[in-house]
Structure formats: structure tokens, C-alpha cells
Design a binder for these strands. Structure first.
Length: 346
DNA sequence: AACTCAATCAACCGCCAGGTA
DNA sequence: CTACCTGGCGGTTGATTGAGT
């Protein structure tokens, strides 16, 4: 049985609303409230579907809406929140009184995205674009065969490939770029209970900032499918290991961190396998991530992890440690505390 | 003035989650 | 448990506007 349409569309008007229609809708809702939206157009004398009325009211006619361009602080908050939670426009809008999700979404797509790109920041990952290129140079997607190999070959000059592959140069943005990057956050102080739970940490992993600095130290391991224990968990003070199953064309990735200023990381080489397989096989990346992330987000998650870690490392008084698979972030840093608090409220 | 192109944003669409019968 | 309804969400479309030639 197919899905029923939201309303009977025969004879209903579509397209831009007229002033007269607006007036009818405002009069009705201010007098009676909207109640059931399906009934609103009938009772208000409008040839519109209820859904159209609801959208017109919430996005345009509501009396508490702000008009005009978003302020600089609103824009900054949108960027911070987007870095933390992605395209959850309604959640973001909830933090900006008088603004609608549609408005923020449009603003993001038409202005902020462009602005970030001009600043050399990827609007999806919030990582510096040249760092993403570096990630790709160091570890292009593993090809299936020679033909695929050619397809995936990054468009680099041979001398650049050699340079990027040199162990000394397997690092993130150069020092000059780091120095020129803007301050990481406008977030102000709030309180948070620490340590964070794993799922809260997962949210923070998606926090990326223009100041993220990642030093790359990639390596790939072959892990037997029967060897499900994650060696890196033991060897690295803070690591997550994407387990490898050669039979399933899965490749290990390791992310490890320290407090010395350099962050060693390597994004995952992930091929199309269902999350359930990972859940079964992976102790570390099992439950919390499967709850929090969609399969397609894993690479983004990994990128976000890198960037978030880099960002947090730069904040004052921040410390990362790992105990029994949980990520503990202990910090008196007001920026981090306020961000975590905002995330908690969502 | 006429035309093209890009930017903007209101509105639409399909999907999903939660509630209810 | 299932089917259905409703409200809400995020992606996309397309009409309008303005800048450039």
C-alpha cells in the first residue's frame, strides 16, 4: 500500500502566497490557534493544503520571526553548531530565536558555504581544504584493480607525490598556515559534567574548526579476521582501530593522539560493508557509533575525529585520555565547556 | 534596452518518527 | 501488532531579483 498524500491536492493552490491568503491565515490563527493543520485551510477559507499553511506560518507569518540578515554572532554560532551537529537545521534554529530552520539552511547553502570555501575550509568537514587534499595524497582510496587505480589516482604532479610521501612531510597544514588561522571559537563559558559519556564524545568528534591541525602518521595493518582483538587499543594511549578483515576487503585505520602537540592520525580506508558487520567484529567502534552514526558517515566521522582532536588539543587546559574504550575529555577550557553544554541541550 | 547568468529564498517534496485507533 | 494520520525535518526546486555585458 502506497503512502497517502498529505492532503487531497485536487483544486488546491500552489506557489507563492498572496497578501489576501496571508491575511486569512494570520486572522484565523491569531483568533483560533492552528490546532490541527489539516483543518486550518478549510476553516480559514484557503485553497491550500494544511502542510502549506503550516510552512507559511512557521517560516514567514509567525509574529516572533526576526527579519533581515543574520548578525555576525548568529553566523558564527551557526558555523560552530554546524561543525558540531551537521545539517540539523531545526536544532540549529532552536539556538537562534526568531530564525527558522529554512532560513538558516538557505543562509548556509548560499552564503556560509561559499565563505568557508573562500577561507580554504571545507564546509562539510570544517577541515582546511589543503589538509583534506593531504589526506588524499597520503592515502588515496584503495583501488580494486589497475583500471580503478587509474581512476582514483589523485591529480598530482610526480614531484608532489614524492614530496608528500616522504616521511618528514607526512604532516598536516604547514606551520605558516597554522599561525595564520583565526581563533578557534567564540564560545563562552558554560558548565558541563566531566568526563563526557562516549556518545557525547562522539558529538565532539564532529566538532571541527578552522584551527584544526593534524599531523599525519599513517600506517596500515593487516589484521586477521579471527584476530578480533584490537592491538592498537593496548599499544596506543588513545586510539581507535577500525578492524581489518582481509577477506572482506576492510582495512585497518588507526587514530592515536598524545598531549605533546602533535596529533598522529590516519583516516580509515573503508569499503562497503554493512554496519552490522562492524558491530559484530569491532569492540571499540561497536555500539556507540552504530547508534550515533550512519554507515556513510564513517569516513566523515573519522575526519571529524581528527579535526576535533586537533582543535581540542589547541584549547587551553585540555587533556585527552582514554579508559576502557571511553574517551575522557577533562578540561577547564570555557570554549569546550560551552560547546558541550549546547550539545547536551540538543 | 535586451540579454545572460548567478544569487537568493519561499515553497514544495518525500521521508520519518511518534501517536493513536 | 498493524495501519494510518499528523507534524516535523532536510533536500531540492524554481521563480524572482540584481549585476554584468
Amino acid at each position: 500500500m502506497g503512502r497517502q498524500p498529505c492532503c487531497d491536492k485536487v483544486g488546491l493552490k500552489k506557489g507563492p502566497w498572496t497578501a489576501e491568503e496571508d491575511r486569512k491565515l494570520v486572522n484565523f490563527i491569531t483568533t483560533h490557534g492552528h490546532g490541527c493543520w489539516r483543518e486550518v485551510p478549510k476553516l480559514a477559507g484557503l485553497l491550500r493544503c494544511g502542510k502549506s499553511c503550516r510552512l507559511r506560518w512557521t517560516n514567514y507569518l509567525r509574529p516572533d520571526l526576526k527579519r533581515g540578515l543574520l548578525s555576525e554572532s548568529e553566523e558564527k554560532l551557526i558555523i560552530d553548531l554546524h561543525a558540531a551537529i551537521g545539517n540539523r537545521w531545526s536544532r540549529i534554529a532552536a539556538q537562534l530565536p526568531g530564525r527558522t530552520d529554512n532560513e538558516i539552511k538557505n543562509y548556509w547553502n548560499t552564503r556560509i558555504k561559499k565563505k568557508l570555501r573562500q577561507m580554504g575550509i571545507d564546509p562539510v568537514t570544517h577541515k582546511p581544504l589543503n589538509q583534506m587534499q593531504m589526506d588524499y595524497m597520503i592515502r588515496p582510496p584503495a583501488p580494486m584493480n589497475a583500471e580503478e587505480n587509474n581512476k582514483f589516482e589523485p591529480p598530482l604532479k610526480p614531484e608532489n607525490v614524492a614530496e608528500a610521501s616522504s616521511p618528514e612531510n607526512i604532516r598536516g597544514p604547514d606551520e605558516e598556515m597554522r599561525m595564520n588561522m583565526p581563533a578557534c571559537s567564540s564560545l563562552e563559558s558554560l558548565e558541563i559534567d566531566l568526563p563526557l559519556r562516549m556518545e557525547d564524545s562522539m558529538k565532539l568528534f564532529n566538532v571541527c574548526s578552522p584551527t584544526s591541525v593534524i599531523s599525519l602518521s599513517g600506517r596500515t595493518e593487516e589484521v586477521d579476521s579471527d584476530d578480533s582483538n584490537i592491538v592498537d587499543q593496548v599499544n596506543n594511549p588513545l586510539s581507535d582501530s577500525h578492524k581489518n578483515n582481509a577477506n572482506n576487503n576492510m582495512t585497518t585505520s588507526c587514530c592515536s593522539f598524545n598531549n605533546g602537540g602533535n596529533i598522529h592520525s590516519r583516516s580509515s580506508d573503508i569499503k562497503a560493508e554493512p554496519p552490522s558487520l562492524w558491530d559484530d567484529q569491532m569492540g571499540v567502534l561497536g555500539d556507540p557509533i552504530s547508534d550515533y552514526l550512519q554507515w556513510n558517515d564513517l569516513e566523515l566521522w573519522s575526519a571529524g575525529l581528527d579535526a576535533a582532536s586537533g582543535w581540542i588539543q589547541q584549547l587551553p587546559e585540555c587533556h585527552w585520555s582514554e579508559m576502557q574504550g571511553d574517551i575522557e575529555i577533562s578540561s577547564n577550557c570555557p570554549e569546550l565547556q560551552r560547546l558541550a553544554s549546547i550539545l547536551d541541550e540538543m
